[in-house]
């Protein structure tokens, strides 16, 4: 018997035991939990979909409904109006919302490192940041733009910023020399539009002092206060989902593709495969299976300074107000 199959058997057993331990409590707070994701189904959210599909949430005694995001779904609106209890945000965006006065709290910083990067074609003679001077840089709309703009300003670059809304086609057509992309998403699309990695120069923002992690789980402070225990279970179950997805990538990909098809979204297996692999790099940057949902104050402060400098916010919300360590993975 190989260690892998052993693990496969052990996991359901552990869940089964958990189910009995938590069963009694689950009847007490029977209220369904609604989660809204910041984008359409894709491997970026494999943990949530896997946890739901495999019944991990149920084992943890919670009933979770997932509301897929998309161009027409505003996560913050869903939470504000009570359409959803929990939502996923990039750290930067959530901070801006809190700074605007919305009483969001981060209860789990799932992503551990920045996936944001700038990509240039070597044919545009860009090899180092200073080569960007005089070039056209495509920058995604506001939620993605803070860090690239901070990068430009920090490096005192004289670039033409082309705001973009739709994707990388303009970069591919040569409309821009550089574009900002997510490592797990558009970077792969560029590769699979026929550009080889060695034809591209990449600037990972994490390498330039902007290692601001992205995806986290948020809810209103009131939601947390009403049932902290449910929050804890939700997060722990979600991380179980991620564990399973990383250990069984092809099964997780099947789940994701199924969800994509249900939403009538073109389901590109190669792309989802890449995305899941990068999510693992982002959620478990040190390898292994030691999850953490802890958001350190240093990271928060570093991120806050970028926002303040960009004037995206006027004051940085207090760390303690913004982040609540919830559940076993939040221990330092």
């Amino acid at each position: 018997m190989s260690p892998k199959t052993k693990q496969n058997i052990l996991i359901p057993i552990v869940w089964f035991c958990w189910f009995f331990l938590l069963n009694i409590k689950s009847f007490a707070d029977d209220k369904p939990i609604k989660l809204v994701l910041q984008w359409v189904p894709q491997a970026q959210f494999a943990g949530y979909y896997t946890a739901r599909k495999l019944g991990i949430y149920e084992i943890y005694g919670i009933d979770v409904t997932i509301i897929p995001g998309g161009p027409n779904v505003s996560v913050i609106d869903c939470i504000k109006t009570g359409k959803a209890d929990f939502g996923t945000f990039f750290l930067l965006n959530a901070t801006k919302r809190v700074a605007q006065g919305i009483p969001l709290v981060n209860i789990a910083q799932v992503s551990r490192r920045s996936a944001l990067m700038l990509v240039a074609k070597k044919s545009s003679s860009i090899f180092r940041p200073e080569d960007m001077n005089g070039k056209k840089i495509g920058i995604y709309k506001e939620d993605f733009s803070d860090i690239p703009l901070a990068f430009i300003s920090n490096n005192r670059l004289d670039v033409t910023v082309v705001p973009i809304a739709t994707g990388i086609n303009i970069f591919l057509h040569g409309g821009t020399d550089l574009t900002n992309v997510m490592w797990y998403n558009e970077y792969h699309t560029i590769l699979n539009c026929g550009y080889n990695a060695d034809e591209l120069t990449t600037f990972y923002m994490s390498d330039y002092g902007f290692n601001v992690p992205e995806d986290g789980i948020y809810c209103l402070r009131s939601t947390y206060d009403a049932n902290p225990e449910a929050c804890e279970r939700f997060i722990e179950a979600t991380m179980e989902g991620w564990l399973y997805a990383f250990q069984h990538p092809s099964e997780a990909l099947d789940i994701i593709i199924e969800e994509m098809k249900a939403e009538h979204i073109p389901a590109n297996l190669a792309h989802q495969q890449w995305m899941l692999a990068r999510m693992r790099d982002i959620i478990l940057p040190d390898g292994g299976y030691e999850f953490s949902t802890f958001l350190s104050e240093e990271t928060y402060e570093m991120m806050g300074q970028i926002l303040l400098k960009n004037a995206s916010i006027s004051t940085l919300p207090a760390y303690n107000q913004f982040y609540l360590p919830v559940g076993k993975y939040a221990e330092k």
Binding site: L191, N192, C193, G194, N268, L269, A270, Q273
Partner: peptide
Amino acid sequence: QSGKFLVHPDPDNVMNASIFDIAEL
């Protein structure tokens, strides 16, 4: 232009996968 299948006998590939995705898989 980006290598995506516009016409292909497999409808799953059309407007979804690129030739590079197939090559990667």
